[in-house]
Write a protein that binds this DNA or RNA. Structure first.
Lengths: 334, 334
DNA sequence: GAAACCAGTCCCATCTGTCTG
DNA sequence: GCAGACAGATGGGACTGGTTT
């Protein structure tokens, strides 16, 4: 394992002083064209790479941003991280991910401490669930923090990008009512427990139409659990329209309905959330509320960059959802 | 933004010297119980967190591992990263992710340089595709590298964990033949272009049965493209069994077949790859070759840890796949 | 426990050169 | 034409927060 060249090596080869090399590197202070040329040649010759650790130590120039999340592989989470990474890379930052498994104080504190000890430029927290929400409150004021979430918040005074999924749920529910359904049932995903979000939107749309929302069901992230719940809906003849927490849950509903002999969209209409790639491939193709998680990630990073640079910009950004009509919804029959 | 306490603050509060605190922290050199106690109390009182940058700078103690990947959100990729993160966190490492968008030299070099400048303890490359493969060859010998892949390799002399998907494809294909199908068609995902992998396994199984493999189709990662290809298979009456590159492609096949009026599994049998959550929710439920990507990630990290610690262990590990039988496969009819 | 050290940055002093009077 | 002033470029050395001799 050969050792990497240092700035001193570059200075020696170029025949200039160490600070001069540093000035060429950081670009802030002017250097004569002649020496700059010399230095650049030496850098290329040696294949010199500045040492990020030393740089972070002395100047606080941080080149990493951290993402705190309860999960990194589920569709929405992974897509958001992807958006963050894309924007971060374009801005010259690396992304370090830290999973906060549970909302327990120990887990949260460990994760936060880990992140802080690595002198990151900023932190983006995926406040999609309990662990994420716990992480938001556990982070100190000493580092720029941005929240990526599924709802606005008055309680937390931090820059925030969020998916307007409450509105999306409202629109989807209203759409189902406009098809003649007398009510809309709902299977909710685990969430951070705060108000707002899909369930609130669904409930609001029903109430606006003078309909008392039926009791909604709570699924875990395991689609098989959602499937069990869906079977109970399928067995209930009063159920003619279902708003599912995401596309996987919607697929579970589709399956449960079909097995029960109820046709979709003939007997029952189903709407999902996310517009995952699979949404257009199931049969019937899913009507769904598309959510641009990658955009959420990019916007979150943009907010973080503002915060890092101290350039106060808008500090709450929402990302719109869009109702995509496919084959799983239709007019109420009989 | 308050400033973080340093080791000197701890030393002052504890009434000991700076090196003593350092000794307590690293744990290598013995410290009297009394002073250790004093130091630990001071650390707790101040909420002191060692500065990872300073530590990496002086002692080469690296606490980050990098993951190089072409993508982070698709199922297999995201699950592998999740497994890496889980194992890394347990071992006290953070994970930084870097996306290598294309196999172009510039993109690869930039990504590699970025990783190297951050003094990571090691690198895991997801060699699932062209960009990943390019990254493997672009990394210098100066840092421990482990490859996570979908096939073994004789060419690359690096520790490697791989999914035995060639074997999985062989078993799946043989299973279809055992159901009476005269041949098996195949839609392949983009891959790194090297031999091995699913397509090779499929082809081997057919040849072993004395069957000349039909021309296989190449899809992109876009499921809609797979759907177009699937339609051409659906239109061909000689197609009675399909091995799809992954579950999304399989779902596309299911849909295309159904639209064409060919029943699954009555007229056509379909097998997917991965066992994504959705596999059991589509109709019919997918028979699929389950791949434990998270385990692949964990194994990769274990290899990396060996390499970092210099403890030479086994340097090639394979993760077995498993054929999961569900409703999309059945005996050849007529 | 004192002192050296890791790889950088940055303050400050020095030096050069040009402009002014 | 020459001293003095001043701006810009450059190098010396202290400093960052730890670890190790």
């Amino acid at each position: 394992m050969g050792k990497a060249p240092t700035i001193a090596d570059v200075a020696r080869v170029a025949g200039v002083s160490v600070p001069t090399v540093s000035r060429v590197l950081t670009g802030a202070i002017p250097v004569s064209a002649k020496r700059r040329e010399l230095v650049e040649r030496a850098i290329a010759e040696l294949g010199y790479q500045p040492n990020a650790a030393a740089r972070a130590l002395v100047s606080g120039t941080r080149s990493m941003v951290a993402v705190l999340a309860a999960n990194t592989s589920r569709y929405g989470y992974a897509k958001t991280v992807e958006g963050i990474e894309e924007a971060a890379r374009a801005a010259g930052y690396m992304v370090v991910i830290t999973v906060v498994e549970t909302a327990e104080q120990d887990a949260v504190r460990t994760a936060v401490a880990m992140v802080l000890s690595h002198s990151v430029a900023g932190v983006i927290v995926l406040d999609f669930d309990e662990p994420g929400h716990a992480a938001v409150t556990a982070l100190p004021q000493t580092v720029p923090v941005v929240v990526a979430a599924a709802a606005p918040s008055r309680a937390v005074k931090l820059p925030r990008a969020y998916l307007a999924d409450q509105r999306g749920a409202r629109e989807a529910t209203s759409y189902l009512l406009s098809l003649g359904h007398e009510t809309v049932h709902h299977i909710a995903l685990p969430s951070s427990g705060r108000r707002g979000g899909r369930t609130a939107g669904w409930s609001a749309a029903l109430q606006a139409a003078g309909i008392r929302p039926p009791k909604h069901l709570h699924t875990t992230w395991d689609p098989l659990h959602a499937y069990e719940l869906a079977k109970s809906l399928a067995a209930d003849p009063s159920v003619t329209a279902v708003l599912a927490g995401n596309d996987e849950v919607a697929a579970a509903v589709l399956r449960a309905m079909t097995e029960q002999g109820r046709s979709v969209p003939g007997d029952v209409s189903v709407i999902g959330f996310d517009d995952q790639p699979i949404a257009s491939l199931v049969t019937p193709a899913l009507t769904t509320v598309a959510q641009d998680f990658a955009e959420l990630g990019r916007q979150s990073f943009a907010l973080l960059e503002n915060s890092i640079n101290g350039s106060a910009g808008q500090d709450t950004v929402s990302v719109r959802t869009q109702l995509v009509l496919r084959g799983s919804t239709g007019p109420r029959r009989n």
